[in-house]
Amino acid sequence: MMEEQAGPVTVSIARKAVPGREADYEDWISRVTAAVSHWPGYQGVNVLRPAAATDYAYVTIYRFSTWEQCHAFEKSEERARLLLELEGMVESEAEIKKVTGLEFWFDLPEVPAQARPSPHKMALVVTLVAYGVVMGLNITIGPLIAAQPLWLKALIMVSAQVLLMTYIFMPQATRLLRRWLFGG
Rank of each mutant, 00 (worst) to 15 (best):
M2C: 09
A6C: 01
A6G: 10
V9R: 02
V11L: 10
S12N: 09
I13L: 09
K16R: 11
A17S: 06
P19M: 00
G20Q: 01
E22C: 03
E22F: 05
Y25G: 02
D27P: 05
D27R: 15
D27L: 15
S30I: 02
S30G: 14
R31Q: 15
T33P: 01
T33M: 02
A34E: 14
S37T: 03
W39F: 06
W39M: 07
W39D: 05
P40Y: 09
P40G: 09
G41V: 04
Y42N: 06
G44T: 08
R49M: 08
R49Y: 08
Y56T: 00
Y56H: 08
Y56W: 09
A57M: 03
Y58T: 01
I61W: 05
Y62T: 03
Y62E: 02
Y62L: 07
E68V: 06
C70N: 13
C70V: 00
E74V: 13
K75Q: 14
E77C: 04
E78R: 13
A80N: 15
A80Y: 13
L84A: 11
L86C: 07
E87K: 12
E87R: 14
M89Y: 08
M89V: 15
S92F: 12
E93L: 06
E93R: 10
E95Y: 12
E95H: 15
I96E: 11
K98E: 07
L102N: 14
E103P: 01
E103A: 07
E103W: 03
F104V: 06
W105C: 04
D107Q: 13
L108D: 04
P109F: 08
R116E: 08
R116T: 12
P119R: 06
H120V: 15
K121V: 08
A123N: 06
L124E: 14
L128T: 08
L128I: 07
V129H: 07
V129A: 14
Y131C: 11
G132D: 10
G132E: 09
V133W: 05
M135H: 12
N138D: 03
I141F: 06
G142W: 01
G142I: 01
I145S: 05
I145K: 04
L152H: 13
V158S: 12
V158F: 10
S159K: 03
A160V: 00
Q161C: 14
V162A: 10
L163W: 10
Y167N: 00
I168C: 10
F169R: 02
Q172P: 00
T174M: 02
T174P: 02
T174R: 01
L176Q: 15
L177W: 00
L177I: 03
R179P: 00
W180Y: 11
L181M: 05
G183E: 04
